[in-house]
């Protein structure tokens, strides 16, 4: 299984998770885990997803998430799991 992390930060609004999940579903990206908090109107979410069956090149998926972030005033970081494995595991 190949995984990626989608981290979303921004002002809280209705439907943020729905919008991110929608793109995941369209791209055949399976959500494995979500953790989210709202602190002082600020929304932060970390989503772990399975990109094994993704139906477009991963960089294009990153572009779609970036576009979504720009449209909604959110910072969305979409990153392949290997960067976390490299930095935090020996």
């Amino acid at each position: 299984m190949t995984k990626a992390v989608i981290a979303v930060v921004g002002r809280d609004a209705v439907g943020i998770i729905a919008k991110v999940s929608n793109i995941c579903a369209e791209c055949k990206v399976n959500i494995l885990d979500i953790s989210q908090t709202v602190l002082h109107d600020y929304f932060s979410m970390i989503m772990i997803v399975d990109i094994t069956a993704i139906n477009l090149p991963f960089p294009d998926f990153v572009d779609r998430m970036n576009a979504l972030g720009q449209e909604n005033g959110l910072q969305i970081h979409t990153m392949h799991e290997n960067i976390f494995n490299s930095m935090h595991r020996i």
């Binding site: 992390v5 494995l32 953790s35 772990i48 935090h88």
Partner: peptide, 16 residues
């Protein structure tokens, strides 16, 4: 699975 604080640390290293 990943530790949330590790993920946030990496993102903050890159972004901030």
């Amino acid at each position: 699975m990943f530790d949330t604080s590790d993920i946030l640390e990496t993102i903050s290293m890159i972004r901030d």
